[in-house]
Amino acid sequence: MSLRQEVNASVVSMKNSKPSKKFKIDKWIPYLFILPSTLMIVTFLFYPIGTVFYYSVQNYDVSAPFYNGFAGLDNFIKIFTQDKLFLPSLMTSFKWVISQVGLQLIFGLAFALLLNQKFRFRGAVRAAAFIPWAISGVLASVMWSLMYNEHMGVFNDLLMRLGLISESKAWLADSSTAFAAVVIAELWRGIPFFAITLLASLQSIPEELYEAARVDGAGRWKSFIFVTLPQLKNTIVLTTLLRVIWEFNNVDLLFNLTGGGPAHSTTTLTMYIAEQAVHGSNFGYGSALTVIAFGILLVFAAVYLRITRFERED
């Protein structure tokens, strides 16, 4: 990785320059200060990622170690030709990411616009609206499974009281409703992140821009389209990109609410990888799946940044 080399090179060049005078020690200090963090990141983030590529061309099966060794592209060929779960799980991943990020953005923006208005108890309402951000995926799974449950779930109770259904339903065990049920639960936890970042960004829009728009005769809707949205553009682009990566990888709710079922209807590619890693023993195959997932994300990020012409503010 050229990045790593650059960091190493700068560390090396720093070591070679002999400090002849005392003030030269000052030149060392920033490198000394970033050294521990750099070591941690390189050793426990970048190096492991590198090894995934290595394992992806190996047979690496803990339960059958005598076959271990170089496998060439066998793992990849098997994934594309024989694996019946690969393509469906990839499709489920797309469905999952698009529904999550799209809906989180829309509702997050709505939450942020609401919370940016002036009203009584605004501080307390903001705090309450952001709470799910601090709640873990597993906890959210417990909470929503208590509500979706067939026998003691509050959804069935409420819907029956309203007369919308006549019999209680196992929302998470029915393949026609399981996916939507998990999507709603994940939305609950995901919206606050968008709301927080968008609210921060809304607050930094200068009031003069709105005044200028008002002078030019723009109403509420027009100033939203022509002032608010353009000002939010960079935040929206960056948060959606980070969120796509995050949701693509996020399996906490899928793992705990449905376990990928029923009949694999909620198995995303990452869920498939996690299953392989946790329950399976073939790390070579799992690594090959991981490399494919990484490639997809990389291509997506490159294309996305191109299309949106994201510019860094300096």
């Binding site: 990622i49 090894t51 995934v52 394992y55 990566i245 996690a274 997932a293 990484f294 994300l297 990020a301």
Partner: peptide, 17 residues
């Protein structure tokens, strides 16, 4: 760059390490 590393990519290699 670290922000773009998929967390799920880490589970297998970190387990081995």
């Amino acid at each position: 760059c670290t922000q773009f590393i998929p967390r799920s990519m880490l589970i297998i290699p970190l387990f081995i390490i």
